[in-house]
Design a protein around this nucleic acid. Structure first.
Length: 490
RNA sequence: GCCGCGUUCGUCUAGUGGCCUAGGACGCCUCCCUCUCACGGAGGAAAUCAUGGGUUCAAAUCCCAUACGCGGUACCA
């Protein structure tokens, strides 16, 4: 039975890189009929943030990355929060000390600082000098009895090397002399990541450790720990990093990194998942498919197809993908288009606009594409419909590109008004269009010479829906009123 | 510094020795649609496959060096 896990530390929000790591673990487990476990690694009390666990759970839920075991739903290996498992780590650390695979260290922060400074000065790799390894059992006991602050360090074997066959990188190995004697238990008695992670992965029967590349160089430490305990070593897969535009590790300084940020900006979970899935993975072959549902990803995912090189997080492609998903989800939504549009934008519109729902829905229909792209900006796109009076800027009305000057505008508006007055209601866009085209022909103008002034008079803006649509949405009374006001001010 | 990992259009990528005069997507540009913007449609520019050596009849694909980039180098994860 394949078992994967996603173990973030609750130091804030879910990072987009974390989302991808979680996704790949999820996909790998689902694809192979295994289990996906969510665990909280809160062994660094200094960095713990209140509410972060809840936020992580909420975000995972939003993304539809459901897990089989976790802190909120329990499971056979509960608890799934490391701060509630501290006795376990103590027990295993003692076992390592007994086996000679770890040792007590009483060095002060000052001494370690001095030591590193010297090593750096000599251009050596900073590494613990094993000062405390020379202590006799009696000396150690003596210091322990005196309650001198201490830690437990992993004892890396003297010679040789440790390697493994990484599922994405192939054969990787590190010489033991380059590996530091890692602290396993801190002086506050909490374990470090290295110990807690290995202990939990073993106890939770994790078979595949799929994590970011930043863990590559600590992997030999972990393997050495598994070996010291005599435990089965899981498979490892180290994912390429997500990068900023300048190709450094994706960071907050250069844009949003929290999934939460994207969610707030209106990105759909399907788009985020789809986008992040393709950053470092591709189904391969001659497939040119770009849009994938979670189910399709599960079906197509394979760890061998994960890339080795980092990928730049490109917002422009995300935007495109979000647009694709918006259209798709909108089409799949049941119901009539006007109702659907209303549902999509409801939350972003002021209540007073909703009083005349029929009018609102007409207006929405004229800005469908824009509002579909950015529902959060619906108010902005509809603004001109809800103004009591439209201010017509002469500078806007006169448009050399459209071959419109003020006299032309005046002539056009007058003729258009007259023609439109013959309608009882503005309920037929085609009829409106036919009539106005007649006006264009009579005046001997270009379409734009009539329609541009009308746009400006009706909306007060340079960019708007088509004139016939606006006439239809506003209705006869309001539309003619706006034209009248514009004419009066000419 | 040391250790490790990586390197195909600006970006995400296809590619596992001949099908590659290197394919797709995003973005960009042009045109079409058109009363504006957007949507939509059609084209286009864009990679001497990091560089230099090999191996081979044949290399983006295999090997070696170099360069560059990134990660790690904590009582953080």
């Amino acid at each position: 039975m394949i078992r994967t896990r996603f173990p973030p530390s609750p130091t804030g929000y879910l990072h987009v890189g974390g989302l991808r790591t979680a996704l790949y673990n999820y996909l790998f487990a689902r694809k192979n009929g295994g289990k996906f476990i969510f665990r909280v690694e809160d062994t660094d009390q200094k960095r713990a943030v209140a509410g972060a666990v809840e936020n992580l759970i909420e975000t995972l839920k939003w993304a539809s990355l459901t897990y089989d075991e976790g802190p909120d739903i329990g499971g056979p290996h509960a608890p799934y929060v490391q701060s509630e498992r501290t006795e376990l780590y103590q027990k295993y650390a003692q076992e390592l000390v007994k086996k000679g695979a770890a040792y007590h260290c009483f060095c002060t922060a000052e001494r370690l600082y001095e030591m590193r400074k010297n090593q750096e000065a000599k251009k050596m790799a900073p590494k613990y000098d094993r000062h405390c390894l020379r202590l006799s059992p009696a000396e150690i006991q003596e210091k322990l009895n005196q309650k001198i602050s201490s830690v437990i360090r992993q004892k890396i074997p003297e010679g040789g090397k440790t390697g493994w066959n990484d599922l994405v990188r192939g054969q990787v190995s590190f010489a033991h002399e380059t590996i530091d004697d890692q602290v396993l238990i801190k002086s506050d008695n909490f374990p470090t990541y290295h110990l807690a992670n290995v202990v939990d992965d073993h106890n939770m029967e994790i078979t595949h450790v799929i994590r970011g590349e930043e863990w590559l160089s600590s992997t030999p430490k972990h393997i050495l720990l598994y070996e010291a305990f005599g435990w089965k070593i899981p498979e490892f897969a180290h994912l390429p990093l997500l990068l900023n535009k300048d190709r450094s590790k994706l960071s907050k300084r250069q844009g949003d990194v929290a999934v939460e940020d994207y969610r707030k900006k209106g990105y759909l979970p399907e788009a985020m998942i789809n986008f992040v899935a393709l950053l470092g993975w591709h189904p391969g072959g001659d497939s040119t498919q770009e849009i994938f549902t979670l189910e399709e990803l599960v079906e197509k995912f394979s760890i061998e197809k994960v890339h080795k090189a980092g990928a730049v997080f490109d917002l422009e492609k995300l935007d495109w993908m979000n647009w694709q998903w918006r259209k798709r989800k909108f089409d799949e939504l049941p119901g009539e288009t006007p109702q659907k549009l209303f549902g999509l934008c409801e939350a972003f519109l002021p209540d007073e606009w909703k009083k005349d729902k029929e009018f609102l829905q007409r207006c929405l229909a004229t800005v469908q594409e824009k509002v579909l792209q950015e529902p959060q900006k619906a108010q902005e796109h509809l603004g001109f419909y809800f103004k009591n009076s439209v201010a017509v800027d002469p500078a806007l009305l006169a448009n050399p590109k459209m071959k419109v000057d003020l006299p032309t505008a005046k002539k056009s508006l007058e003729a258009a008004m007259k023609a439109l007055e013959s309608f009882e209601k503005f309920d037929d866009q085609e009829a409106l269009k036919a009539k106005l085209m007649e006006v264009v022909a009579q005046l001997g103008f270009k379409n734009g010479q009539v329609l541009w002034p009308m746009r400006v008079a009706l909306t007060g803006e340079a960019f708007s829906p088509g004139v016939f649509e606006v006439l239809w949405a506003l209705g006869k009374e309001m539309a003619l009123n706006r034209l009248k006001i514009a004419l009066k001010n000419l």
